[in-house]
Each structure stands twice: as structure tokens, then as C-alpha cells.
Amino acid sequence: MNIFRLLGDLSHLASILILLHKIQTTRSCRGISFKTQALYVTVFVTRYLDIFTDWVSLYNFTMKIFFIASTCYILYLMKMKYRPTHDPSIDTFRVEYLLGPCALLALLFHYRFTVLEVLWSFSIFLESVAILPQLFMLQRTGEAETITTHYLAALGAYRALYIPNWIYRYFTESGQIDPIAVTAGLVQTALYLDFFYVYFTKVLQGQKFELPA
């Protein structure tokens, strides 16, 4: 564990709490992509199957359980409790275009050809693109509630912080590098660059998040 990892994980935790707060206080899931949230559940479930096989630490275990449980709860809120506030007609990204290629990539690139390891690879590839339905929705509507942009910023910060974490680990753990996680992580962070630009130049200056027409 290093400071970048810890801040990254806390940022991830914060993003989920911000999203829950947004849904509960506005009593609405307007502006949130159900597809992205469903992809995150898939990511967490396929990656964290290792809670049954590898014990790392109480911290690690608790975070994994929290990410699975909280994201499932968000799906419940969107599909049941606040269902009328979710508009599927603007959440139209075709997730099969993400699931298929990620499954193929996982079959091609993995560390061991076992069910657990191939699913782990799949989850890494899928996480890198899971935000696309959400960003696509943002692009379509052209604007977002400020709290939704804070959610996205915290999520993006989590990914961005994993990069210095890997650099730190490379130098402190005798040249270790995880090529699958690093490649997917760089792609994932790159997807946020456009969003970050608008977030820093508009939202943090007190303006509304609006994309140029």
C-alpha cells in the first residue's frame, strides 16, 4: 500500500458515496446511466471472486464487499425505488459492443488460463470502458447536474491515481509491472480527459457543466 493507492481507493469510495447522496437527496437518478452501473456490478463480481480464494487483508476484503454491495444497491435504487426518474431512451449505448470485445481480449490476454484469471482479465478490460455509456449520455444531453460531475471527477481521480501507484510500485517492488492492468488503466484514464477539461474549466469555476453545442 502506498499513498497513491490509498488516495485512489478513497476517491473510488467517495465517488460511490457521492452518487448515493445524489440519488437520495434529489430522490432521482436523472442523468445517471443504468448501463454503466450495471457494467460496474459485472466488473466487481467477476473481479472479486478472489475473496473466496485469496485473503489479502481486512481492508482489501471490506472494500471488495463494499464495492459489490453498494453498486448492487444503486442498481436497486435505479430499477425499483426511483424507477420513474430513469429515462432509458437517453441511455442508449450498446453494451454488447463492449462486452464482446472485452471477453475476446480476456481470452487472448491473461496471466493463467483458469476461470478465475480469465474473469479477472475480463473485469479489467471491462472496467476500462464501463464509463462509456455514462459519458455517451452526457454527450447526448450536453449538460449535467453539478453533483453528477463531482461523482465522475472522483471516479476519474481514482483511475488517475492508480498510475503514480504503479510507477511507485515499479520502483519499490523490484521492477514489478502488471501489463494488463496498466494498459487498461491508461486507456480508462484517457477516456476521462475530455470530461476533466470541462470539469476544471467550468464546474470548479462555479459554472454549470455544459458541453459546447
Binding site: 478472489d50 514489478q176 509491472i177 492492468a181
Partner: peptide
């Protein structure tokens, strides 16, 4: 290249 234990990261 050595790979770090990836179960450690979230």
C-alpha cells in the same frame, strides 16, 4: 518482467 500480485489491488 515480474507481475505484482493483482489480488492486492482493487
Amino acid at each position: 518482467i515480474q507481475q505484482p500480485d493483482h489480488h492486492d489491488e482493487l
